[in-house]
Computed example of a mutant assay.
Amino acid sequence: MEQSVVSVDVVTLRYLPEDAGVTVGIAPREFDPFAGRLALPGVLLGRGERLAEAARRAVRAKLGVPDAAIDAVGQLVTFDEPTRDPRGPTLSIAMWGVVGPHEGPARWAPFDAVPALAFDHNRIVEVARNLLAQLLWKDLPFTRALAGAEFPATRAVDLTAALHGVRPDPANLNRTLAAVPGLRRTEERRRTKATGRPAAVWAFDPED
């Protein structure tokens, strides 16, 4: 039986203060198959390499993001369709990554405007979005990396809408935020461009 190889493909998210919503990092492939086609950053898993290390390597090499700007990475799901790679059977372990401000050549696209990608990467993005929506406000490393140490309530609305595809009910979202461990509503109110009105500011407790 032909042996499979293992690739690590990363759904890399960026959500900077100046961004209107969450965007996904993609870049042209350098080599065949699909040379020149846009794709998620991916690498073959090296012998003895941990998944998180491979994910960081993929984001550095394919998106040009320096390691210092990669805030966090985590594992999502495995794709095992035997024909997903024309070179032969390849398992794809989909990872998530969150990056901060940096200079780089990557292209960033909103979830609803991701163009046609190589391999099964559009399917990976679709599945990953649903899984990440479930992690938001529940998985603390993912949530803290994406939301930041503090944020106005309007940013929480925009972030939730970007992953779920629909805007949340404000009252339900406030209850969700109040239940997040280590997250508190501060006394500060911050005026935002989105509404022009002051919004409550939420902040995570400092990490040890």
Rank of each mutant, 00 (worst) to 15 (best):
L132S: 04
R107M: 08
A162I: 05
R50Q: 13
L38R: 12
L131W: 09
A145Y: 08
I93M: 11
S92W: 13
A106N: 06
R107T: 06
A55C: 04
N174P: 00
R87W: 02
A61Y: 08
V99E: 01
D112L: 02
T83W: 14
A145L: 04
H164W: 12
L51Y: 15
L45N: 03
A156L: 11
A109H: 12
L173F: 13
G64E: 10
T83Y: 14
L76P: 02
V127W: 11
G42H: 14
G97P: 00
A69L: 02
R84H: 07
R107S: 09
V127K: 06
A118F: 14
Q75D: 10
A68R: 15
H164L: 09
F151M: 08
A72Q: 13
R84W: 06
V73W: 09
T90A: 06
A133F: 06
P110C: 08
V43Y: 11
V77F: 15
L135P: 00
A153P: 00
R56M: 11
P33C: 07
L177G: 05
P86E: 09
A39W: 07
L140N: 03
I70D: 01
V127H: 09
P89R: 14
G48I: 04
A61C: 02
R57T: 12
L91H: 14
G74C: 01
T176M: 12
V125A: 04
F119V: 02
A113H: 15
F31R: 12
A58S: 14
A171G: 04
L132H: 03
A94E: 10
A156G: 11
A147W: 07
G104W: 14
R167I: 01
M95V: 05
L132G: 01
D158I: 03
L63S: 03
G88E: 10
T90C: 11
L51D: 10
P105F: 09
A153N: 04
A55P: 00
R47N: 08
G48A: 03
A106Q: 11
H102T: 03
W108V: 02
L159S: 02
D67V: 05
L40C: 04
Q75P: 00
R50P: 01
L132V: 05
K138W: 12
T90I: 02
Q134S: 10
L76G: 04
Q75G: 01
M95Q: 11
F31C: 00
L45Q: 09
A109K: 08
D80Y: 12
G100H: 09
A68M: 06
A133S: 13
L159C: 02
L44G: 04
N122P: 02
R107Y: 13
F142Q: 05
L44I: 07
V59P: 00
N174I: 04
A109S: 10
R50L: 12
A69Y: 07
V65R: 02
V98P: 00
R129C: 02
D112S: 07
D120Y: 15
V77A: 07
A161D: 06
P168H: 11
T143G: 03
A109Y: 14
F79C: 01
D32C: 00
T160G: 01
A156I: 05
E126A: 14
P89V: 10
D169F: 05
T176S: 13
E81F: 10
F111H: 03
L40G: 02
V157T: 10
A72V: 13
